[in-house]
Design a protein around this nucleic acid. Structure first.
Lengths: 230, 230
DNA sequence: CTCAAAACCTGATAATTATCATAGTATTGC
DNA sequence: GCAATACTATGATAATTATCAGGTTTTGAG
């Protein structure tokens, strides 16, 4: 694998690393390692002590947490440009989430030392990280409200719209990110069978079209209305 | 109202203001204003532009978000030492949450300027804020999992345990923080009637005792088991 | 290619939760 | 003190969601 320098990495534009100085970036670049992770493989597990953060260059990872009843709740999908493990490294705690690739990925592992020293010395960088975390926190609040106040049907409609907005569609009109039915159920927090049933219903009503695992949005207007509760 | 100086305020130990220098603290103290807020009164509303943060000296506030179906979801209860509005001020966004007092409160309003300048100049303070936000984010993840994977019964059991652990009991063995049934329902994300029904059931089973609005924990062991799903 | 495992799908049923209706019980303002 | 108002409580019922059980289809390893 060619070892692209962080200085030239486009992905950096999307995350807090853009607030680093040339020298800081150089140090990060020298200490980082690039890995490929196949779909289905874990990056880290809940409870792991993380020695650094993972910057996503390509692909998507699900961040999930095991609930006492044995089900996995997907809390977030991390894509190109996102930095995973930041929270745990900053709080100096073990990870509260597991990360598993849902598509083939290319990630850069950045040891925590180079992050920690920059955090102490470059207030711009620290502020940038802070802003990102503030954004994540707001999103988490939104998820809490959705989970507790919307029906499964509404949440699934919303999930499809989210997938379209964040990962786009391929040239056949299907969502570019294909999740298994089980993963969809774990995003919205329901039983796999319930998710499948609602997907079938959406298909029957002409809101979506499917082909195997693939799902495409057919009537975005109606899906949006449904997500809002009409 | 006597205007206690931040320098001497014990509450400061619990939040990020403890990372401020003497001079910074002095500036904050000079610019802050102290307010009392009666139970039921709002501190700010969802969508408000906040010109500063609120540091809780006494009392408790609910932080909630209106869902499209018209129900209010309580996302967090902020108590002594907590700083409200931090997220919005840092992200330079309007507040995504409303804050309403659930008991009589005493809060200090700190204009954002004195916060912002300290954020830029004192990396220790920024890091401290970052650590607090990292903690909040983890808690939010936990709430998401609870909301989506646990039953209403489990969530109510958990809420009572949470109230005991975080706000304690009075000398008659009741939870020190008394919430209305509606607020309990809004914490847990269910209909008020459902919450009341389950509270009655818990009482009948000897898990709790009640007197008017007041609730006391009687069998903590069983409540814990229930919250875990046994 | 083949076949076993995994994923998907549907039906029947049970459990959970929301909604509506109604009545009792506190609280509060005048 | 009393009426208006808000809060608490419970029943009846409907809607939502989970679970179990069975198929079918897809996938991937050998």
């Amino acid at each position: 694998m060619e070892n692209t320098r962080c200085e030239n990495c486009i992905v950096r534009q999307f995350n807090s690393l853009r607030a680093m100085s040339k020298e800081e970036l150089k140090r990060v670049s020298d200490s980082k390692t690039t890995k490929t992770v196949k779909k289905g493989e874990p990056l880290f597990e809940e409870g792991d002590k993380l020695n650094g953060v993972y910057c996503v260059r390509n692909g998507v990872s699900k961040l999930s947490k095991l609930s006492p009843n044995g089900k996995d709740q997907i809390v977030k999908l991390a894509t190109r440009g996102e930095v995973m493990g930041q929270r745990a490294v900053i709080a100096e705690e073990t990870s509260n989430l597991s990360a598993v690739a849902v598509s083939d990925m290319e990630v850069c592992f950045i040891p925590k030392d180079s992050i920690a020293t920059t955090l102490q010395k470059n207030p711009n960088f620290t502020m940038e990280v802070l802003r990102h975390m503030a954004h994540d926190l707001k999103e988490a609040d939104d998820v809490i409200v959705n989970m507790s106040q919307k029906t499964v049907k509404q949440r699934i409609a919303e999930a499809f719209l989210y997938l379209k907005n964040n990962f786009g569609e391929n040239n056949e009109g299907f969502l570019a990110l294909t999740l298994s039915r089980e993963d969809i159920a774990n995003v919205v927090g329901t039983a796999t069978e319930s998710a499948i049933r609602i997907i079938s219903e959406f298909k029957k009503k002409g809101l979506i079209h499917t082909s195997g695992k693939q799902i495409g949005i057919k009537d975005e207007r109606k899906l949006k209305d449904l997500a809002q509760g009409f």
